[in-house]
Write a protein that binds this DNA or RNA. Sequence first.
RNA 1: CGGGGAGUGGCGCAGCCUGGUAGCGCAUCUGCUUUGGGAGCAGAGGGUCGCAGGUUCGAAUCCUGUCUCCCCGACCA
Length: 440
Amino acid sequence: MRLSRAFLPVLKESPADAQIVSHKLMLRAGLVRQTAAGIYAWLPLGLRVLRKIERIVREEQDRAGAIEMLMPTLQSADLWRESGRYDAYGPEMLRITDRHKREMLYGPTNEEMLTALFRDDVKSYRDLPRTLYHIQWKFRDEVRPRFGVMRGREFLMKDAYSFDLDEAGARLSYYTQLLAYLRTFQRLGIRAVPMKAASGPIGGDLSHEFIVLAPTGESEVFYDAAFEDFDWNRADLDYSDEAGLHGLFDQVSGTYAATDETHDESRWAQVPVNRQRTGRGIEVGHIFYFGDKYSAAMGLKVSGRDGSPVTPMMGSYGVGVSRLVGAIIEASHDDAGIVWPEAVAPWRVGIVTMRQDDQASADVADDLYARLTAAGVETLYDDRDERGGVKLGSMDLIGLPWQIVIGPRGLAQGVVELKDRRSGEKMELSAESALARLTA
RNA sequence: CGGGGAGUGGCGCAGCCUGGUAGCGCAUCUGCUUUGGGAGCAGAGGGUCGCAGGUUCGAAUCCUGUCUCCCCGACCA
């Protein structure tokens, strides 16, 4: 992308409405614009990041055997009356009446809808287990939206739902998603620690929140540093390996991690002091098992092996995709701006010409841009006729992992500058070497 | 939902108390000079002062109502 043709508005000052760093940076770097309280338009840069996250989430869901579909944002109130949640949900649910006076709602989640869909078409134990998911916009009419996209009213969420014949099967589905989540967050380049959540409606040990560590997090967290060393992508862990999945769950359960809500001082005291980590965190995912809560209420039954009706046991698994954009920035930024992990960066490389009016600089930049792009390296080329300092400032703000700075001074020596945004490390090397490094 | 605050050009703000028809910085546009970390000078464009009523010769300013946004708390992916 040539910046001279992009829609990438960058602000020098933060709008007064933004309080926390990710919100300020998202506005300044041109990721989003607020259009109403807790509702945002995603500008091109923000959308690229959102899509990157979405793709990783999708790939890991697919790898874990979940099946993608897409359910609508609008739902009928009758569906929610079946589960009893239409009245229970309260004012957080955005209720809408259509022209025929039918009561509708903008979905805050999809348990009812998928349970109904499943009920209508699945009749046999042979069709279980299944885990289905979609990535869709949701709406929760928060009384007080804040923190930009991290606590918006409209948000993009991946939500998966598992259906199993019995609790043992449901546990395995849960473990599978647990692993998928650990892998997803690892790939996103952030540290998200699974924490046992306050027991949900069913209770038991099957509910975890995934918390990204960031100083501005909403809740206080305590965890064993061992979590920092686990490699969830290790080769010996496979979704088809039941014993391995049980082992994974035991490993996660056996390593201390809790939010202030579930913190247990006596168990905490057993964590070696040198491994005790405390901080603040942002919830970016939540998984839980809820048994037959919806299947029973909504009459979902399949024929069991012996012909008798069986009520499937369910779980649901959410990832706050749009919230992750903010959470990642909270966890990864510096005074100059955003520092994107490579996996989610809107572009991998940014090319800056210090003097676009210098023909030699422009030629080298044009050539590098063309060759990087041809090699499949996503590149943003700041070819604007702006002062070098302005362009470098924008590039730092936008936070692409690599910057190539090209100017007459360096070219006189036959070099360009390659800068690592995260470390700030700069090296001077030939344009060819820079290209080789970035396409290696 | 309780408590607090704010709506003035794209962004950040002043003006309001003490009514007299709108100003500053940044950004934008033009010209000249500049050019390796957010340039300088000169000039220009851009605002029904959230909206609706009221008071007044006259309202950004005073009064009433209303909408919106933000902060603290309770609540939440």
